[in-house]
Design a protein around this nucleic acid. Structure first.
Lengths: 106, 106
DNA sequence: TGGACGTATAGATAAACATCAATTTGACAC
DNA sequence: GTGTCAAATTGATGTTTATCTATACGTCCA
């Protein structure tokens, strides 16, 4: 699993989120591996458009990808997303703290 | 203080954040009241541009405004911002919970 | 009621961006 | 190698958006 954990600015983070199609993609690959074709089937945009959005999400460090044979599977990096959300809150809402809930492994 | 607490989608929320000038404005009015002219002085964009961005932030429920005489003062609604961040995390990172830290008044 | 000041709106323009069709690249099977 | 399928890239197009200038609106004071 090639993990590209870029450190991006809050502007880049927000821009990556600021599109309906990308948010649909994020919801679809939030908790599982999905191929590009899976996404194309579930969205009403063409395959190159899906690839375009996946590239933006990947550059923002919000998805990870993994090739399996002819297919490439994507999944959302929930930790990166959560860190981005916390960073935005920390930067702009210092009086209204937002924290990641760390689940301590037993 | 006219509070416009709109319930907006995560897409609208992200779009409101997705601009460098708006993030600068948010930082400047994060913890205090600032007039439009204050913002114009501290940013290198024209006054109508500042007003334009303030309108977008206001429509997103992220700033509150208050007229005092000839001036209009804006301030960031930190709670709305924090709620937006939590909503994004909740929607897309359910396995990586992010919570607002509620400070209990004594 | 003017004028001055601060802010908002209207209209124009250029840059950014989402989308698509066409093509290329990559991986596998024969 | 050749064909096939999956995904990425290229190039074009229309829309969105950030910005500006010019103007209108709102408030206060003389």
């Amino acid at each position: 699993m090639e993990t590209v954990t870029l450190i991006i600015s809050t502007v880049e983070f927000a821009k990556a989120l600021a599109d309906e199609t990308r948010q649909k993609i994020m919801a679809l690959c939030c908790c599982e591996l999905v191929s590009v074709n899976d996404l194309v089937d579930k969205l009403d945009v063409a395959q190159p458009t899906v690839s375009h959005h996946l590239k933006i999400l990947k550059n923002a460090g919000l998805v990870k990808s993994e090739r399996r044979g002819k297919q490439v599977f994507y999944t959302l990096d929930q930790e990166s997303l959560a860190r981005g959300c916390c960073q935005v809150a920390e930067d702009f809402a210092p009086n209204q703290p937002v924290k990641m809930v760390i689940s301590v492994p037993e």
